[in-house]
Write a protein that binds this DNA or RNA. Structure first.
Lengths: 204, 204
DNA sequence: CGATCCGTATGACATCTGTCATCCGGCACG
DNA sequence: CGTGCCGGATGACAGATGTCATACGGATCG
């Protein structure tokens, strides 16, 4: 072979990360040259190792894989980005694409698709599950405003209106208004459902 | 070597499952003889392949890895059980141990501990993260009654009292009473927090 | 410039939620 | 046998939540 494909692996759970490394290690044209456990370590590692492809989990401490993807895309536009996630939320796919991802894989998919996706993005292809792509398009864009998202996110842990108001420097009435509009936009009956639905769609 | 250690791998996410298989495949005394993606397929697979060790993820469709562990323990008491989970919830550890697990690992732990744990349980040892064990002991037992757990579980998706009452064949007042006592036992201020805390502790 | 949307806020109102006291029947434990 | 605890229920009450109308300043867009 002319040269190995250099891959960075970003995933917070060591066992999964090292297992994925073992999996990719079985491919004789792929070499895992760096592993990180936090989103905020991705950029530095990409710079340090001259990687060809970054494989990014979404759920990570530090920053999400999507944010990391956006940064890498800005700083190193030639590095290919594969986003890997547990949750096939259409909103995630949308954000990942906006962040410049070249492939979007769910961990439910067969392992063989991983190496395959790495080779495909390197040859300029994009890799997206067609079912997910359809779902993302069918779902439409996130209807929530930035503020509504913030309030909903803050309300997710069961905080009361008074606590939300204090935390976000808003009046209690305003908090209620935002939650009310969010509840209506999501067509649900209370904040708890709103949080759940927004999460499921990847809108939070 | 005299004989390979036969391992069953139960984990719903194909990519993770096959990656773990690749990882274990690197060990020359371990052989993954079966893989399943659902909890309710574990028992049959254990019976069919004469496995020495079953490696069980907790979060799985069909039934949880803990339930699967309990069944295997009843039917095949000589099969060693390693429970693997994303979440280091003390309540999970407790339930896993009660189900007859020999080892309890979190996916955060270094990959090397996996093969190590498999060898240790086969030699009769138990493998438990000491930090987690301490947390499980410090936390005490689940204070919620079966009914309180059920109601809380049903309330987790944001259902209203009326819906809960209908779904559980209870009066609305009774639903409120159960939620109220659960809220007090968990020392929180509303059902949303109660759900969150109970989840975190693995009491749901 | 006017229309529209966002962020913020208030007040009033209806409904939902959480608490408490109280009750019943059943079951377990000393 | 009494004393608890659990499952189940009712009614009353206070406080939290959700809805609606309305308002104002700023931004954006035609």
């Amino acid at each position: 072979m002319t040269s190995m494909i250099k891959v960075l692996l970003a995933e917070d759970q060591s066992m999964v990360r090292e297992a994925l490394a073992a999996l990719l290690g079985l491919e004789d044209d792929i070499e895992v040259v760096a592993q990180v456990a936090r989103g905020d370590q991705v950029l530095a590692a990409v710079g340090a190792h001259g990687v060809d492809v970054a494989l990014l989990d979404i759920e990570m401490p530090g920053c999400t894989g999507i944010e990391a993807a956006a940064r890498v895309h800005r700083e190193f536009p030639r590095v290919k980005l594969v986003v890997l996630t547990t949750f096939g939320r259409p909103g995630y796919l949308r954000s990942a694409m906006e962040a410049g991802a070249d492939a979007f894989l769910v961990k439910d998919a067969p392992a063989a698709q991983l190496a395959e996706a790495i080779r495909k993005v390197l040859s300029g292809e994009r890799v997206i599950d067609p079912t997910l792509a359809a779902a993302a398009l069918a779902e439409g864009a996130n209807p929530l405003t930035e503020r509504e998202r913030e309030v909903l996110r803050a309300a997710a842990d069961g905080s009361t209106n008074a606590e939300l108001a204090k935390a976000l420097h808003l009046s209690q009435g305003t908090v209620r208004n935002y939650l009310s509009t969010a509840i209506q936009k999501l067509a649900v009956r209370n904040r708890a459902e709103a949080v759940r639905i927004a999460r499921e769609k990847g809108w939070l």
